[in-house]
Design a protein around this nucleic acid. Structure first.
Length: 299
DNA sequence: AATTAAACCTGGCGGC
DNA sequence: TGCCGCCAGGTTTAAT
């Protein structure tokens, strides 16, 4: 799925394209997502305020969630799951796109860039082959208490995130550090790809117990998380199979993965030592694959 | 309480 | 070629 960098790239694209558009209309083609779409989703989303249809005030991100803030204090929450996509088109057609697992479509109207009173209609389609993604609607003033957001941990780009935060968060934890990184209640937004990549950058074995990490290693890990997420955002995210940008294009960071998906390849940090190190290894940790270099990433 | 496994879905790939 | 099992960027729920 899209992890933090992919969601962030999408957020920036959508905000640029939609600006302060108004949500003019929407359709639901499939309610059975990872969690069934709530009864009043469309009606609540489309409720007009004094000036007309709801205005898009901002698009924010929390962990892997996209948050569409609408006027009138409503927020649309979107999680892309494993295969969710949000695609923009210049179109005013709400008919579903066939044979592409489109489940929702929104029409936004915004002022034409050339100014004047002309408006432009933009269609935003939500596609999700596996239907692990989901949407919900919440009141803005209750957003932090929403069941799906309430338990989320620290944002990696928050000022408070760093080695000492990880020391505290990992204290007493007997799970592996790799599993701890996937726990959204600790750090929000890191998924299976960037967990492996961050551990590689920090030169830490994914099998180490989170609670056993020294402060020094927690500092390296925090730096590795931030740097890999920043680099991935700058490269437009990673496109492996399902993730695409809002224009259908893809990111480039998959070409810069050091370990993920590179089983048997030479470690980029131990060049020319393939025979000694055995190259990148793959293992399973609580059902998810982990990639690492056993020579460079010590216990 | 803490960890792990199963469940939710569809599609693509390698092996036979 | 066709069928089958396995795997895939996630989260929640049930079971150990």
């Amino acid at each position: 799925m899209p992890e933090l960098p992919e969601v962030e790239v999408l957020r920036r694209q959508l905000r640029r394209a939609l600006g302060d558009a108004r949500l003019a209309d929407m359709r639901i083609y499939e309610r059975r997502l990872r969690f069934p779409l709530s009864e009043g989703f469309a009606d609540t989303a489309l409720t007009r305020d004094r000036r007309g249809t709801p205005r898009l005030e901002d698009i924010r991100r929390r962990g892997k969630y996209l948050l569409f803030h609408l006027s009138g204090g409503r927020v649309l929450l979107c999680h892309l799951g494993m295969s969710g996509q949000l695609l923009l088109e210049d179109s005013s057609q709400l008919e579903p796109r066939r044979h592409c697992h489109e489940h929702l479509a929104f029409l936004f109207r915004r002022r034409d860039r050339r100014g004047g009173s002309r408006t432009r209609t933009v269609r935003l389609g939500f596609r999700d082959t596996r239907r692990f993604g989901f949407w919900d609607i919440a009141r803005a003033d209750e957003l932090s208490e929403h069941p799906r957001l309430r338990g989320l941990g620290m944002e990696p780009f928050d000022a408070g995130f760093g080695g000492s935060f990880l020391v505290g968060a990992f204290a007493g934890r007997r799970v592996s550090v790799k599993s701890a990184l996937l726990d959204q209640r600790i750090v929000a937004g890191v998924g299976n790809i960037y967990a492996s990549e961050a551990l590689f950058r920090a030169r830490i074995s994914p099998m180490v117990c989170a609670g056993d990490l020294t402060a020094r290693r927690c500092g390296r890990l925090a730096a590795g998380i931030v740097s890999v997420l920043e680099d991935a955002i700058a490269a437009g995210g990673s496109t492996r199979r399902d993730y695409v940008h809002s224009d259908g294009g893809g990111g480039y960071f998959q070409h810069r993965w050091s370990v993920y998906g590179r089983e048997g390849e030479p470690c980029p940090g131990c060049r020319c030592r393939l025979a000694e190190t055995g190259g990148i290894q793959k293992s399973l940790q609580s059902g998810r694959s982990t990639f690492y270099c056993p020579a460079r990433q010590r216990r």
